[in-house]
Design a protein around this nucleic acid. Structure first.
Lengths: 247, 247
DNA sequence: CGGGGCCTTGAGGCAATTCAAATTATGTGG
DNA sequence: CCACATAATTTGAATTGCCTCAAGGCCCCG
């Protein structure tokens, strides 16, 4: 009757395995092989930058807990956030094949990261084709998300754009089995602005409007609370297809 | 003295091999294996859509000649172009692992496409790890380009944005060994608008200004001619890093 | 209790949009 | 090779969504 303690306890990479299984079938043996991967747990504080554009890297990182974003800067110094990662997400798989970083990674709040030697991952992929496939699939889904961001920033007005960002976060959190009614909002208004290609001033006004309309609510700890995700999905013009969550 | 005719003649997939070699080392045997891939040549006319969002596919396509773009549409019906492909580019590698299309592909002008069964590509990757790696690397470079487009659309003004688009096309054409002083401009002003998140009216005005400043010129057949790429690179705030052309 | 983030609000300005119409290319059939 | 239809470019005028600048308020933390 009692659950046995032991190997099946929570492992830092379990969330990563869950994330891969969102899009790929992995045998238990594959999952076990991932758990046996050598890694070091890295605790980063808010705003730390575990990798900067231009760095030559030797490891890949999995976000174990916390939130991290990825950004680039224009010649003029303007920042654009390109992705927001939640626990379980691999945050720089690209560096497995392109070891020179083309973006900077920054912790949104204090986070825990598993650092895995690239060589170990390559070896694992060579030994286990199902894992290699799962990794490519994860890369491709991310790629589809990048494309949706182009669409979001290029063709939607501020209100829809911001709503869409919240929707995406909520849906991805939900898919990962994380609490999603409260979207992680240690995302400052500045960061929302940088993720949507807007100004923090304008973001502020739009948030006010969305609040007035009841689409979002303030919540403890600076979280954004989504009282009715279905309604917000409509405001954000959200279509699930690009996330490839067919499961 | 005379070149021997035979196996070394131009093959439709040679441009693809060149494209892969931009970022990956491929042995001659690998290249030869690619040439032996079964494929059918498809001639498409302007505006044809070889694949639509939602299609379930069984093939992957390589652009042999011509130009193709990839787009998505918002709930409101606005189009955003997400990528522009030139000869040699694989245009839907993502479908190798995610067979349901999340974008629509459309020919900018009449084009020739090589259609390869996904199964054949999978087999080839399994047999030749170097090719599998090269394909993943191609996917990752594309992904970096998508991110640059987010930055472009999100954080640059119209002038810089349009200049950046031309720069990217010119640089990619050049890298592929194609003529690049004349950027392919069967891209209509509507299409430039959809690629940059602007209005065709505004694109028209900016083009006029860029012409007045001598950064671009009109050329036969609706091409845009870039008299001095180095200058345009500055106007577009262009940084090569994201293209990963270290070679 | 003072300083530094972050959020909030107002007023004014501008880049880009919308609407509308004229002009110029492109292509097709007679 | 011209006439006509269609698509693409160009231009103007008015509008607006979002930005800039600037100041004030809140809250956390030392």
């Amino acid at each position: 009757m009692r659950k046995k303690a032991g190997a099946s306890e929570v492992h830092p990479l379990d969330a990563f395995i869950r994330r891969l299984r969102l899009h790929s079938r992995l045998a238990d043996a594959d999952a076990e092989a991932i758990r046996r991967l050598p890694f070091k747990l890295l605790q980063t504080r808010q705003n730390a930058q575990p990798v900067r554009e231009g760095d030559l890297t030797s490891h890949c990182m999995i976000l174990v807990s916390g939130y991290i974003h990825r950004f680039r800067i224009t010649e003029g110094g303007d920042r654009q956030i390109l992705a927001i990662y939640v626990s379980g997400d691999p945050i720089d798989l690209d560096r497995l094949y392109l070891p020179v970083a083309d973006d900077t990674l920054q912790a949104i709040r204090e986070s825990a990261i598993a650092r895995i030697p690239q060589q170990s991952l390559h070896d694992l992929c060579a030994a286990r084709p199902a894992i290699a496939d799962a990794i490519v699939r994860a890369v491709l889904v991310d790629s589809s998300v990048f494309r949706e961001w182009i669409l979001n920033v290029g063709r939607r007005d501020a209100r829809t754009r911001i709503a869409h960002l919240f929707c995406e976060l909520a849906v991805r959190l939900k898919a990962q089995g994380l609490p999603f009614e409260h979207v992680p909002m240690p995302l400052t208004q500045d960061q929302i602005a940088d993720a949507t290609g807007l100004t923090s001033v304008h973001v502020n006004r739009i948030l006010k409007a969305l609040r007035a309309e009841g689409h979002i609510e303030r919540s403890a700890g600076g979280l954004v609370c989504v009282p009715d995700l279905d309604k917000l999905l409509i405001v954000g013009g959200f279509d699930f297809r690009y996330l490839h969550l067919d499961g």
